[in-house]
Computed example of a mutant assay.
Amino acid sequence: MQIQEFSHYICAAAADKVPAIIVFGDSTVDAGNNNYILTVAKGNFPPYGRDFDGGVATGRFSNGRLVTDFLSEALGLPSSVPAYLDTSYTIDQLASGVSFASGGTGLDDLTATVASVITLSQQLEYFKEYKEKLKLAKGEYVANEIITEALYVFSIGTNDFIINYFNLPLRPAHYTTAEYIAYLVAEADAAVRAAYELGARKIFFAGLAPIGCLPSARTLNHDPGECNEEHSQVAVAFNAELTEAIGKLNDELTGARVVYSDTYDVLSAVLSSPSDYG
């Protein structure tokens, strides 16, 4: 999905009065859930948060707001999406947006185990719990309307390669790269179907960025500072299979619209001409 198409989709969603944004994934969308679990993967110290409101490190793995925070604001919702495990938020506040995401996690539960973070399956269990809390607070009719009309965001998969497959021996011993990609895409498919069974209908799934150009990949590359093109091509292959799976989901899930976001080309454009983006 190109930037123009994505903008059109968000404008359409805003016009539809989306009541909430509900988020699953990794550090790209973790609003601070890792602050409340026993893990070293935390973003609750400087320079994280230096450009966030008040200069506070909230647990977001970012200098400021996350993409999902900007999406929330674009939809006419609050300017940031709270972390589900942050008990300072009431269910009434979480009714307009909530993130179940956990930095360091992946589609493969082994990835989450390595980092001692929240698996995607546990995030979906938290979503079930959230639904019940919402029904108690808002009544079943209003709660169901929020769940059905909300925008669901999945941003996950990078860590399965950079933490797991490229660095640990277990998965490469049992899967070729192509087989592991197929395994991960099947997990993505299952997660979307699980969310659908729980009421999700408007679903946005982000593809992988050029993972060979991430700072860790550049640092560990045999030519330090340069992108690892082999790793980035794995992301290209994953995105191609994910796109195909999303097409099938749209054919099979009655009443659902699942949208793929091409983050690869967006980040590649920034990397190739950073001055154009400030």
Rank of each mutant, 00 (worst) to 15 (best):
D30V: 05
K248H: 11
F161Q: 04
V236L: 14
K135Q: 08
E252V: 05
E125L: 11
G139V: 01
Y180V: 08
E226P: 02
F161S: 00
A143H: 00
S62A: 06
I91E: 09
G212V: 11
C11N: 15
D251R: 10
F45P: 02
L71Q: 00
I146F: 08
S79R: 13
G225A: 13
V192I: 14
D53T: 15
S155W: 09
A194C: 05
S268M: 10
L170Q: 13
A178C: 10
L267N: 07
A41K: 12
R257V: 08
Y180P: 10
G207C: 07
A15M: 09
A143M: 05
T87K: 14
F45T: 04
I147E: 13
Q4A: 13
Y264F: 13
G103H: 12
N159Y: 10
G59H: 01
K128L: 00
G225T: 08
P19T: 06
E241Q: 09
I146G: 04
E197D: 15
V18Q: 09
L249F: 08
H174S: 01
L184D: 13
L168C: 07
V98L: 11
Q2M: 12
A115Q: 12
S155G: 02
D86P: 15
S27E: 06
N33Y: 11
K138R: 10
P172F: 07
S232H: 09
E125M: 08
N34A: 00
V56C: 06
D223A: 02
N35S: 07
C213F: 12
L267Y: 14
E132P: 05
H8R: 06
T219K: 11
A256P: 04
F24K: 01
Y9I: 07
R50I: 14
V142M: 04
G55L: 00
E179A: 08
K202R: 07
E149Q: 15
V23L: 05
V259D: 10
S96F: 15
E229A: 07
R201I: 03
T28A: 07
F61D: 02
L38S: 15
P215R: 00
I22P: 14
K135R: 11
V153W: 06
A209P: 14
I146W: 03
